[in-house]
Amino acid sequence: MILMSQKYKVNFTVNGDQYERYVEAGETLASVLRVELGLTGTKVGCDRGDCGACTVIMNGKAVKSCIIPALKADGAEIQTIEGVADENGLHPIQQEFVELAAVQCGYCTPGLIMASKALLDENKNPTEEEVREAIGGNICRCTGYEKPVQAILKAAKKLNGECL
């Protein structure tokens, strides 16, 4: 890392695109994503790792980006909510969140989707217990979690090619 007028160079991949930015030592990953990169889909609800709205996938694992130092992400591969849908359309998790109305106010939604995508990326056939565990750090004030859990389980089935 090179120090440039109190700023450090950081390189990372976000949603497949390579970025190089100069950031302050104390900056968080959430802030760099939102302010520097304009990726405002990642929400900040508490800014201290309690609510999970800022969850992104870093090197294959779900993490709360508001408590990740931006410089810790140097060299990392990051995925945010903006990178989940592809040219074929919505990811099955997004599809099910929309169809089952697991999206209410939508503020916790990106975090919930990223936490559950990290789960389904490594475990194609999760139990309901594993789903609850994966989103146990994501506060939702609207849904009571019933529809998000159902949406994630249904998306898993879809990803496994099960006819629904």
């Binding site: 304009g38 405002t40 849908a85 929309v98 999206v103 503020y107």
Partner: peptide, 23 residues
């Protein structure tokens, strides 16, 4: 019926701008 909310896709893809996202 069960209909998708009009803004649900925007919310599920992170595209919807909430007040704090404006610049």
């Amino acid at each position: 019926k069960r209909l998708d909310k009009i803004e649900a896709r925007q919310k599920a893809t992170g595209k919807l701008k909430f007040t704090g996202d404006l610049k």
